[in-house]
């Protein structure tokens, strides 16, 4: 198993993500520059937080047209696991891999703090090691994390169980229905505003993010042993 952490000009959580993969999953991981046009050797693709292309025009709008994004779309179509965190989530919505968009926080403030999340769907490749409804502590750091989609899309998200995380207690950005993270219909693409990679050791104030990485590893192992037997 090999993990790619995509690096865009302006990414700044790429090192945190790389270290989290190394520390928690203990599998080979590479930084992959946004100009890359082959991701075939990677099983899991992670899009980090930051301010790709300075957030010019809209968050994620320019990064979405990086050469690597065509490959990310291809990988998602192949069923590979793709996870976008914070700016990575914004890029995934701009690319159309996830529905909706992320607007300016309702408070207009950049919020940077530990945030309580409720695991709404623990039946995904990314959240299987959590209990359903479990409340976890994961830090947030964003100014534009206010998730929005139209009513029809919201109904679909609910019907397909695509709302993976909701803010528990205070909603830090005014997102629709307290949404903090969603997945696509197939369940192999996940986007979330909070940063699980910044909560993987007790000294980070919380280690609750670890289980996202163990979930991914577990999913991969299971899928591959199934393939090996068939």
């Amino acid at each position: 198993m090999r993990v790619a952490v995509i690096v865009f000009p302006g990414s700044n959580a790429d090192v945190d993500l790389y270290n989290a993969v190394e520390d928690v999953m203990g599998v080979p991981v590479d930084y992959v520059w946004h100009a890359e046009n082959d991701l075939s050797r990677y099983d899991v693709i992670l899009l980090p937080g930051g301010f790709s292309y300075g957030d010019y025009l809209r968050c994620g709008a320019v990064a979405r047209f990086s050469p690597v994004m065509e490959q990310v779309i291809k990988a998602a179509e192949q069923g590979k696991l793709v996870m976008g965190i914070c700016n990575g989530f914004q890029i995934l919505t701009e690319a159309g891999l996830l529905p909706g968009a992320l607007l300016r926080n309702r408070s207009l403030k950049f919020r940077c703090k530990l945030s309580a999340l409720r695991v709404e769907n623990n039946d995904t490749a990314f959240t299987r090691d959590y209990a359903a409804g479990e409340v976890i502590q994961i830090p947030i750091a964003h100014g534009e994390g206010n998730y929005y989609c139209d009513e029809e899309t919201l109904e679909k998200l609910k019907a397909n169980n695509q709302i993976v995380f909701r803010y528990h207690g205070e909603n830090p950005n005014g997102s629709l229905e307290d949404i903090a993270g969603i997945c696509n219909e197939k369940g192999n693409v996940l986007g979330m505003m909070p940063h699980p990679e910044r909560a993987v050791h007790e000294w980070m104030s919380s280690a609750d993010g670890r289980r996202m990485f163990t979930s991914i590893l577990q999913t991969w192992r299971e899928r591959n042993s199934v393939q090996a037997h068939s």
Partner: peptide, 8 residues
């Protein structure tokens, strides 16, 4: 394609 995000 780029200048507007027609979702919002």
């Amino acid at each position: 394609k780029l200048l507007a995000n027609t979702v919002i």
